[in-house]
C-alpha cells in the first residue's frame, strides 16, 4: 500500500507534500515516513495519507480561476490612490504576487 507523505518543517507551518512510502498500514507508514522523509530536513510533524484516498483535479479538467476577466475579485482592480492600512497593503502585495504567478503559469 502506498502512503502520501506531508511534512511540516516547523510549528505553525503548513504540511506540504514531500513524497511517499510503501507500508502495510498507518502505524508502519508513520514509522517509515519519519525516517525516509524526516531524517535530514527540519521536521516538526508528518502526516501520512493513503494514496488511494487522494483525489485529483488538474488543469486538463478545469481552468482554475477561470478563463474570462475576473479582475473584480482582485485588490489590483481598485485604484484608489489613498493610503491603505498595513494589512490591506499586505493583502494587496500578496494578491499581486499571486496574479503574477498565475500569469507565469
Amino acid at each position: 500500500m502506498i502512503w502520501e507523505v506531508f511534512r511540516q518543517e516547523k510549528k505553525g507551518d503548513y504540511h506540504t507534500h514531500c513524497g511517499n512510502v510503501h507500508a502495510p498500514d498507518r502505524e508502519m507508514a508513520k514509522q517509515f515516513a519519519a525516517i525516509q522523509h524526516g531524517r535530514r530536513k527540519p521536521t516538526n510533524s508528518i502526516w501520512v495519507v493513503p494514496k488511494d484516498e487522494v483525489g485529483e483535479i488538474d488543469t486538463d479538467d478545469v481552468p482554475f480561476g477561470g478563463t474570462t476577466d475576473k479582475a473584480y475579485r482582485w485588490t489590483t482592480a481598485y485604484n484608489l490612490q489613498t493610503e491603505q492600512a498595513r494589512e490591506v497593503e499586505e493583502s494587496d502585495s500578496e494578491q499581486q504576487e499571486a496574479e503574477k504567478q498565475r500569469g507565469e503559469a
Binding site: R73, Y78, L80, E87, V88, E89, S91, Q95
Partner: peptide
C-alpha cells in the same frame, strides 16, 4: 482570509468614493 480580504476593503472604499 487576510490574503483575500484586501479586495473587500478596497472594494468598499471604492463604493464610498
Amino acid at each position: 482570509v487576510c490574503f483575500e480580504e484586501g479586495f473587500h476593503v478596497k472594494h468598499g472604499e471604492d463604493i464610498l468614493r
